[in-house]
Design a protein around this nucleic acid. Sequence first.
DNA 1: GAGTGGTCTAGACCACGGC
DNA 2: CCGTGGTCTAGACCACTCC
Lengths: 223, 223
Amino acid sequence: MQKKAYDQVLDYLKERIERKDIVYGGKIPSERELVETLGISRNSVREALRIMEHTGILESHHGKGTYLVNRMGESLSDVFSMLVLMEESNYREVTQLRKILDKQAYVQACTSITEEGKEKIQRIASRMEAGDLEERMRADHELHRTIYEYSQNHLLLLLLDALSKLIHEQGEIVLRQAASIDTGRWICLHQKIAQCLIEGKIEEGLMSVEEHYQWLECEIKMC
Amino acid sequence: MQKKAYDQVLDYLKERIERKDIVYGGKIPSERELVETLGISRNSVREALRIMEHTGILESHHGKGTYLVNRMGESLSDVFSMLVLMEESNYREVTQLRKILDKQAYVQACTSITEEGKEKIQRIASRMEAGDLEERMRADHELHRTIYEYSQNHLLLLLLDALSKLIHEQGEIVLRQAASIDTGRWICLHQKIAQCLIEGKIEEGLMSVEEHYQWLECEIKMC
DNA sequence: GAGTGGTCTAGACCACGGC
DNA sequence: CCGTGGTCTAGACCACTCC
């Protein structure tokens, strides 16, 4: 089992990334350059670049070049959506996972959040009360995301993004219905979470998150 | 922004997978067939196949063909390891995530485990006591994996596999040291988890899992 | 030997972005 | 206009598997 040609490209680029020779947002050598450097055909180079692009670390721009980026969240959500497609997973498992991630993110955010962060949470909570359905949906997403940001765990944030996208694709309509049917409860639950976070109440906040998910499950069943 | 050629292949195959036209372990059309069917070049076909292979749903076998498989765990662990490579994540975040997944898996396994499962856990725990270091390392992995299996959540199991592989690559030596230095405690902690699971003690088992991770953190710091 | 994946050749043309 | 990615042509040869 000898190495495949495109593996050379993967190794070569990973090594340069590790050496910080290529940095975030930076350009990688053009396809034709890699052909010369590594002495392989353009086909093989392109196979490697497609893999890395799909992994979420490269982005090719027609006419400009290929750049080092961080879009691994999208790549993860692709994998998850393939899992669902192949019926190896389902909506129940996805929300189950999100619940425990939400809880953990909440706990960590509680101890790490700054004053600035608390103000941000406060602003989002206010918007939830005032805005229309669209505005509330956006605020909902921002609230959850902000909590993850202050959890100081990139891995959690990445998984949130991946799961969010998946839930977005699958459960958008359901969530929309639920949020519009029982608006009062929906706002109340989110504000409770926000309030607990601001006041640093870990246990109470956790219960709110739990409540939030129980409410979601109920609403989903009713739809 | 029009569609890229290889996207046609992705769409075509995904559609056939969704229709159950291609099943697990089954063979997909050969590259040359896809060229004819879709009217695109072999290069483009291959780019698409490389993407899907790297996503963990295809596997090409030289001289045989390309098959539909489920190796998405490996694909996930690739993404995670790229994250670490690009210093967007680290060992702390990975173990933190694993801890909460372990806990959740434990809780769900507690309520879903069968008599057969309990016997399996019992056997693994015994092996841990009797065997040498290698045997214990294997038993350790099997214990954790069995718990995930009975959690009845494929997504959790998939993430475990991905994280395990990553930890294996990064922390193998540390774990080995820790396990050999403080063998008694190590065995004791695992047996406690096993025992709690068999007896259905949720809260007590959760504390054991927590203890297990605290012990790990201590040992890692000491190394 | 037939079929398959893995790789390469040596070009070509197009579409796009930046100068 | 030049460099870039996106795609294609029309083959070719090798290594591998299965029969």
